[in-house]
C-alpha cells in the first residue's frame, strides 16, 4: 500500500472534520485470519448478520420483489471477526468461517 501524502494544517478541514464515508477507502480486509463464507442456498435473508456486523461488510440489495436480501460479503473491509457466522441462526448456518489462505 502506498503512503499517502498527509495533509498540512492549511489543507485540513477545520475542527477535525471528516467527510462521510471515508472508511470505505480504508481497506481492512487484509487483517483477516479467517474468512466468512456465505452459502446463498441456505440463507433465509433474516439480515441478522447484517445487523450484527461491526464493519458493515454484509452486502445487501433489494431483489425483484423489492425485498432486501443478502447478496454477499465485502471482503475488502471484513476483518474476519466471525460474529456473522456465530449469529446466523443455528438451524440455518448459512455462514461458516474458513481459514484464510495467504
Amino acid at each position: 500500500m502506498k503512503e499517502d501524502k498527509k495533509l498540512t494544517a492549511a489543507e485540513l478541514p477545520a475542527g477535525g472534520m471528516l467527510e462521510g464515508g471515508t472508511a470505505e477507502e480504508f481497506k481492512t480486509g487484509p487483517w483477516r485470519s479467517q474468512r466468512p463464507v456465505w452459502n446463498k442456498d441456505k440463507c433465509i435473508h433474516c439480515l441478522t448478520c447484517w445487523i450484527y456486523c461491526p464493519d458493515a461488510s454484509i452486502k445487501i440489495a433489494p431483489d425483484d420483489k423489492k425485498t432486501t436480501v443478502v447478496t454477499g460479503i465485502d471482503y475488502d473491509h471484513c476483518k474476519g471477526c466471525g460474529i456473522c457466522a456465530r449469529e446466523c441462526p443455528v438451524k440455518i448456518q448459512a455462514i461458516t468461517m474458513e481459514e484464510e489462505k495467504k
Binding site: K6, L7, T8, A9, L12, A14, G15, G16, M17, L18, E19, G20, G21, T22
Partner: peptide, 20 residues
C-alpha cells in the same frame, strides 16, 4: 452531506489540528 466530527486524531494529525 454527512460528516464525522470528534473522531480520534493520533500522532499523525492531532498536532496539525491544534496548530489550526
Amino acid at each position: 452531506r454527512p460528516f464525522t466530527l470528534g473522531a480520534i486524531d493520533l500522532q499523525d494529525f492531532y498536532f496539525e489540528h491544534r496548530f489550526q
